[in-house]
């Protein structure tokens, strides 16, 4: 690996790790189901960037783009279904606070 690419890789990697921390913190600290989904979105964004970066570094940008396009389509469907589930959780509890989901014990 040339030093140029190695430098690019290392500073992108640092930002991707920070983005992962951001999303994980959001999921861990929130009491709101919508916000948990937002945290999840941030995690998926970080993964997207990582895949594109990997494709760029190993010269397979085309493959990485094909993967990311499929990934984005899946992401939308996950968010739509999650939206429907959150809606029903709100109808049952009048709240989107997952602390109120205490009916089930892990």
């Amino acid at each position: 690996m040339s030093p140029d690419l190695a430098g690019l890789f290392s500073y992108f990697m640092i930002f991707i790790i920070l983005l992962f921390i951001c999303g994980a913190y959001c999921i861990a600290a929130t009491f709101n189901m919508v916000r948990a989904m937002i945290g999840l979105e941030l995690l998926i964004k970080a993964a997207t960037l990582l895949i594109i970066l990997a494709g760029y570094l190993c010269g397979r940008s085309a493959l990485a783009q094909a993967i990311v396009i499929t990934l984005i389509v899946i992401e939308i469907v996950v968010m739509v279904v999650a939206g429907g589930i959150i809606l029903w959780a709100f109808r049952h509890n009048e709240s989107i606070d997952p602390r109120k989901l205490s009916n089930l014990k892990g």
């Binding site: 919508v34 964004k45 594109i52 783009q65 992401e75 939308i76 968010m79 809606l87 989107i96």
Partner: peptide, 30 residues
């Protein structure tokens, strides 16, 4: 990063459509 097509998808879908889904969900709730 040399990936224009994926960028288009990210811009139109993730920056355009997903906020719409989220806002729809939030607007139904309290």
């Amino acid at each position: 990063l040399n990936s224009p097509l994926a960028a288009v998808f990210e811009l139109s879908v993730c920056a355009g459509l997903i906020p719409v889904i989220f806002i729809t969900t939030v607007s139904f709730t309290h």
